[in-house]
């Protein structure tokens, strides 16, 4: 009997491999045969039109700021910093490089001190500005060269001393070297690998939506356990420059760009168009809620509209999870048989 089984198994393996749905480890997520090309194409277009373009825009925004630091008025520097912050939030929201390569893991923490390394940052910078030693040595810690440190330097008070201007240059040089690595990485690498690439991308989007909701909105508004009923505008991401709404908008616009440049298409090819549609609608809804603020969000952390925005981003996060479940194979079967 066992020999019967051995030969049968062999025969059937051969037969199975001829099927167009044979598992190749690539397109298991997308059930329909023949969509591999579209899937890879969509991932490639997200990589080139969004990830790479955003990295280029970040570099150029830093160059503009660099020129302004040389000579320009404080107001021009501030405007240039805002543009760079906007560009950085886009790149950060879609930062898949750390999933694609070990070497890229530390970069976001080098650039951004929000929520990880900003304890006493302001006091630390005040001390450095009051001293007179070499700035490159004084600003040896990464968080003192972060985009948040630069924000404090440009927005802490109404004027920019020569020492602060010098510090800004040191900080920007540090940021630029990190930006250059990101850009270089996206020139050479992008999302690929079918199902795995889609998985990496959606995981990043969910992570970004979660952090937007919890860190960038919930903590300042006192909506999360850690700061329950303890709203404090100083916890907004860019409280010093009152640019937090701008940052939220940039994150959502990055999500929107990913959806329109390929992810909606990927979802549609896997019969998950309604889930993609729900995501797009949630993003648009959140963007118009942000537009409805006519003053900086930092003015009133108890504004009831913040709670509504928090709920809207929560919906966005849930919708991404619904997309995973829809892309997944289980829902397409209703195994209602007996035995």
């Amino acid at each position: 009997m066992k020999s019967i089984f051995g030969s049968m198994a062999l025969l059937l393996m051969l037969g199975g491999c001829m099927g167009d749905n044979a598992y190749d480890g690539e397109n298991g997520l997308i059930g329909t045969p023949g969509t591999t090309v579209t899937l890879e194409g969509a991932l490639a277009s997200i990589s080139s039109e969004v990830l790479h373009q955003d990295a280029l825009a970040l570099r150029s925004s830093a160059e503009t700021l660099g020129m302004a630091i040389e000579t320009a008025e404080l107001s021009a520097l501030r405007e240039a910093w805002r543009d760079m912050a906007r560009a950085w939030k886009r790149v950060e929201a879609l930062y898949v490089a750390d999933d694609l390569s070990q070497t890229m893991i530390d970069i976001p923490a080098n650039v951004d001190a929000f929520h990880i390394g900003n304890t006493d940052l302001h006091a630390k910078l005040d001390r450095i500005f009051a001293q007179s030693g070499d700035l490159a040595i004084a600003l040896f810690q990464n968080n003192t060269k972060s985009i948040n440190a630069l924000e404090y330097t440009l927005f802490n008070d109404g004027n920019l001393t020569e020492r602060e201007r010098g510090a800004a240059a040191v900080m920007l040089a540090h940021l630029q070297s990190n930006y250059a690595q990101i850009e270089q990485f996206y020139v050479q690498n992008g999302l690929s690998g079918g199902e795995e690439g889609v998985g990496v991308l959606i995981n990043q989007l969910i992570d970004s939506a979660y952090k937007l909701k919890e860190w960038r909105i919930g903590e300042a508004a006192g909506l999360v356990v850690k700061y329950k009923d303890n709203p404090d505008a100083a916890h907004f991401e860019y409280a010093v420059s009152q640019s937090s709404l701008l940052a939220m908008r940039a994150v959502l616009e990055a999500h929107q760009a990913v959806m329109s440049s390929g992810l909606s298409q990927i979802a549609a090819s896997a019969s998950a168009a309604p889930q993609a549609e729900a995501i797009t609608t949630a993003i648009t809804g959140a963007l118009s809620m942000i537009d409805a603020f006519d003053a900086p969000i930092e003015n009133d952390a108890t504004d009831t509209r913040i709670k509504a925005l928090y709920a809207q981003i929560n919906l966005l996060q849930t919708n991404y999870t619904a997309l995973i479940a829809a892309l997944n194979y289980t829902q397409k079967i209703i195994e209602a048989d007996g035995d």
Binding site: G16, G19, N21, A22, Y23, G25, G28, L29, E195, E196, V198, G199, V200, L201, I202, N203, I206, Y320, T321, L323, I324, A325, L327, N328, Y329, T330, I333, I334, E335, A336, D337, G338
Partner: peptide
């Protein structure tokens, strides 16, 4: 049997999505 399937596959999938996010996938044959 249908409810049983929805609950079993649903719980397994929910746990796996929590652990691994969108990187889950089923090994398919045929």
């Amino acid at each position: 049997f249908g409810l049983r399937y929805a609950l079993s596959a649903g719980v397994v999938t929910g746990v796996f999505i929590t652990l691994f996010g969108a990187r889950i996938g089923v090994a398919e044959f045929l």
